[in-house]
């Protein structure tokens, strides 16, 4: 029984991955757009050691921040749109008539979106290494944990929006309204260090700020103890959003 469910999960994940890549918007924003901004800002600032970033280069700072950008895009736009349109169009209803368990659909959505986040991040890292001599001072395992926590917390936020919004259009708008200010004010695209103090105060209220801080910390090899607050915030977000979306999950 469990075996067939797992086989179905892989099949669904594979089909959904192809569907993700056939969506030009999704493929562009997760795979191509981060590379474009990398080459744009990397081209302007280079990756020379910089006093402001504690002796690190601008690209060293930007790459983990851009990972936050990818996680935010996938979580708030693609997870949300995907779940909301599947519900609205009756695709979930169609699955409901089969012996498919709902948990498989949820797992498959998480897996596909995480895989795409990972691929976008991988491309970004490889490009930054080749073009800008990107430096990684952290440890792979703790960094991966931080990356997974950040991704899951934002995906769960996406599920909540999809569950609470009355239509897929509304969920799309909510996702964008949350995402765009965060993109610019959380350090995910422009380093907070160059922002005025008032913006930095706003940033404290944006969950994406904690993603960026945690990923940068893990990338630079700072001990987890220095980032307990970020870990706490993101874990809290994940738990609260998972509970809400479990309680409000609807097939239609």
């Amino acid at each position: 029984m469990a075996g067939t469910q797992i086989k179905t999960l892989w099949k669904m994940t594979w089909v959904e991955t192809k569907l993700f890549l056939r969506e030009p918007m999704a493929a562009f924003f997760t795979l191509a757009f981060p590379l474009m901004v990398l080459f744009l800002f990397g081209g302007i600032y280079g990756n020379e050691p910089n006093e402001m970033f504690g002796g690190r280069g601008t690209v060293d700072m930007l790459v983990p921040a851009y990972m936050g950008m990818i996680i935010g895009t996938v979580g708030l736009m693609f997870v949300t749109i995907n779940m909301a349109t599947y519900r609205e169009k009756g695709i979930l209803r169609r699955f409901k008539t089969t012996p498919l368990r709902p948990v498989i659909i949820l797992l498959d959505t998480v897996l596909v979106n995480f895989a795409m986040t990972l691929v976008g991040t991988g491309l970004l890292i490889v490009a930054a290494i080749l073009a800008f001599d990107l430096r990684f001072d952290g440890h792979v395992f703790p960094f991966l944990l931080a990356f997974i926590l950040a991704s899951l917390s934002f995906f769960s936020l996406g599920f909540v929006i999809a569950s609470l919004a009355p239509t897929s259009r509304v969920s799309q708008v909510i996702g964008m309204v949350l995402f765009y200010p965060m993109l610019f004010l959380s350090g995910a695209s422009i380093p907070l260090q160059i922002m005025p103090g008032s913006i930095q105060k706003i940033a404290d209220f944006l969950p994406l700020t904690y993603v960026v801080k945690l990923l940068q910390g893990a990338w630079f090899g700072e001990p987890a103890g220095e980032h307990l607050f970020e870990i706490l915030i993101l874990t809290g977000l994940l738990v609260v959003c998972t509970v809400i979306s479990a309680l409000t999950f609807r097939w239609e």
Partner: peptide, 23 residues
């Protein structure tokens, strides 16, 4: 179902393959 759909970009064989795997 009276009202249902498949993902816009799924291909006929992929839908058949997926449902075959569900059962």
């Amino acid at each position: 179902l009276q009202e249902s759909a498949l993902p816009d970009r799924i291909k006929v064989w992929e839908a058949m393959d997926l449902f075959a795997s569900i059962y």
